[in-house]
Design a protein around this nucleic acid. Structure first.
Lengths: 191, 191
DNA sequence: ACATATAAACTACATTTGTATAATATCTTG
DNA sequence: CAAGATATTATACAAATGTAGTTTATATGT
């Protein structure tokens, strides 16, 4: 099922999806993904089960939908807007913002990315890699390191960042963000 | 269910697990993970369904078991044995070996890591990150870059590599390994 | 080789999943 | 506001999932 674009959506449909996503987000904080059934989600959302299947093929697709929303919110929140900075400064600021973004809603993201639900982390990865790839293809980035393939770099760094974030979220006693970022700086050879 | 160690395992149990893992590996090449049922696996493996559940809680746990096997095989195959080389050379050789390892059984790994099954990629990630972390904690690595946290570096680089590998496997017209590796070299600041 | 332990098979059951069809309710458009 | 469009609900069903209890087959250790 192609998940329909939000734009030309009936009021009823938007409401249903909102309820379903919120229900899943709540339940994920309460117990692991595998132990949340479609029945549970529908009960919590007060939506009939057949309605669920009118919107999503299965539980995973709802999770994917949830994660896509998070990624969009993350990108909108974290990407610096002023184009004056140097590429290196831009990327470091973005990295710092991303960590702080995830730190703010720790429980939810931890639930979304952990064990069972991590399932769909590739969703986040795809979205983020695409975003970063477009960014690194811009002239200002190509200029400072013309010998680096933007696609390769994009997948490399999104994978690295998401892995770090997942590990950081899953830790019971997480390292301070500044410590992580000071390490991170050494891994980015770009000037 | 704690998946029992291979060591003290009955002959019957080893046979059953072998059949189940092979059945899943075969089916994953034929169709996507979501479309493979426990019933399918058991039919293919000629194992009763209740026996399946005596070994694994669900389909995902069997996949996890399969991936753990792959990771062990990968590590045993790819890590250079001679400790004479420089850390940089060691890591680059390991990276090259890993890519070649995945390239050899492209269809299977592609099936295991793609969309639905990617589900459990965190298994590979955990295993590999642990392995790399131990490696980077050795004195010879600490010596060349003492200011880098081995844990952070391990998660950073395993995430990066796995993301690259997943992307490379999923591509219909994959980039040449040498091209990838020449890019990779620029991302590893270690000497 | 035999006795014991235990894994696999068998049977049965409650729950969940995914789908189809018909009804009812609600939104959108003119 | 009214009419038509369509999303939601309701009901039913086949298949898959996960579990429990019992019987049969096979491996292990002496």
């Amino acid at each position: 099922m192609e998940i329909q674009k939000e734009n030309h959506l009936d009021l009823r449909q938007r409401k249903t999806r909102k309820l379903l996503v919120e229900a899943l987000a709540q339940l994920l904080v309460e117990r692991p993904y595998q132990e949340v059934s479609v029945v549970d989600i529908c009960r919590r959302a007060m939506v009939h089960r057949t309605t669920f299947y009118a919107h999503f093929n299965d539980k995973q697709e709802l999770l994917r939908y949830l994660l896509e929303g998070l990624e969009r919110e993350c990108a909108d929140t974290c990407l610096p807007q002023d184009p004056e900075r140097s590429p290196r400064e831009y990327l470091l600021t973005a990295g710092r913002n991303v960590f702080q973004f995830f730190a703010q809603r720790r429980e939810l993201y931890r639930a979304c990315l952990d064990s069972g639900a991590d399932a769909q982390a590739h969703t986040l990865e795809e979205c983020a890699a695409g975003e970063l790839c477009r960014l690194l293809s811009e002239p200002r980035f190509r200029a400072v390191s013309p010998q680096v393939d933007p696609q390769v770099a994009a997948h490399f760094y999104t994978g690295a960042m998401l892995s770090l974030i997942r590990w950081w979220l899953s830790s019971d006693d997480p390292l301070p963000i500044d410590y992580l970022l000071s390490n991170l700086e050494q891994f980015i050879p770009i000037q």
